[in-house]
Design a protein around this nucleic acid. Structure first.
Lengths: 168, 168
DNA sequence: TTAAACTTTCAAAATATTTTGAAAGCTTCG
DNA sequence: CGAAGCTTTCAAAATATTTTGAAAGTTTAA
């Protein structure tokens, strides 16, 4: 297989994977493109390489930035914005876990807490099943939450690494 | 909050969570309904409680069965099929992990293996970045795969538990 | 200030996904 | 066998999501 074809395949595969996990296909594809591109790209270049509109490119890039997966780069004496993706797969995974925890796990735990607190008649099979399922899932969700927190915190020594880098 | 309202909220929340993770909203809602219902339900009852069509209910239930989250129950002397969801949250998580691994992780690893094998000019920055990103993600994916496999296997002692149950 | 170079917005259009429901298929029973 | 009772199918309709692109907004430089 040739590089051009392989790059294309990677972009497609990443896009498909993304959409299977509730991430917009284009967002995943832009991310893929930036992952396999050594330099930072402009909106224009991204639009062209993926054949997407300016509006789409712009929105998608902002989303990627809000997910912490892509960053803007400003080049000396240029007005254009360049976009660059962190290529460390562990950072990517960490970042995605962090965001999904914040965006989805935390809110569902909040709801499950409320629902776990609902009182009812212990003799009522409906109530008993409801209560058991909800508290059970709540416990599991909290376990996952704690585990993620620990993993993410532990790895935040990355923070110090990046600080240290500045001084090298 | 009252039980009826709470049940409704749970169904909504589960549906929303599902759709954020690439699972059809209705599928998640049917699953939610079965999770908080002590007895097995018929298609008819599910259609009514969630106000969905027969076709939708049927498809959704078949999907849930193929995900291993719901099972059919046949009752003595009745022709109707009843549907019942396993209420053990750990089993649910295990089952989802197992299926997504099979459906999504395995295929992407296969593609990444192919793409990792693509040869190119080591002096070419594009090639180098492509190759590094792809092999890197491939390694991570394989790690996740191995970890899941180990976890799922370890837990298959559940298998023996269920066998033993039959003899009690 | 003005104009050029970019970026952002958002309503409408395009696309993709989900849902419907009527018809066709089974299976069982009399 | 025929019909009743259920389940499955699938094309069309409804809905939801994504994408477009032109216009508005912003920033910089002269």
């Amino acid at each position: 297989m040739e590089l051009t074809e392989a790059r294309q395949k990677f972009i497609e595969a990443w896009g498909k994977l993304g959409s299977e996990w509730g991430i917009n296909r284009t967002m995943a594809q832009v991310h893929a493109l930036l992952l396999i591109t050594p330099e930072a790209l402009t909106t224009e270049e991204i639009m062209e390489q993926l054949s997407i509109s300016r509006g789409n490119a712009n929105m998608t890039l902002r989303d990627l930035i809000s997910w912490g997966l892509v960053e803007k780069q400003l080049k000396q004496g240029e007005r254009k914005e360049y976009f660059y993706a962190d290529k460390d797969s562990w950072n990517i995974a960490r970042q995605v876990a962090k965001e999904r925890r914040k965006r989805e796990l935390d809110p569902i735990i909040k709801i499950l807490d409320e629902l776990s607190a609902v009182k009812g008649n212990e003799k009522d099979a409906d109530y008993k099943t409801f209560h058991k399922s909800v508290t059970d899932i709540n416990k599991l969700a909290k376990n996952v939450d704690k585990t993620l927190e620990t993993m993410l915190k532990a790895d935040e020594s990355w923070f110090w690494k990046s600080i240290l880098k500045v001084f090298k």
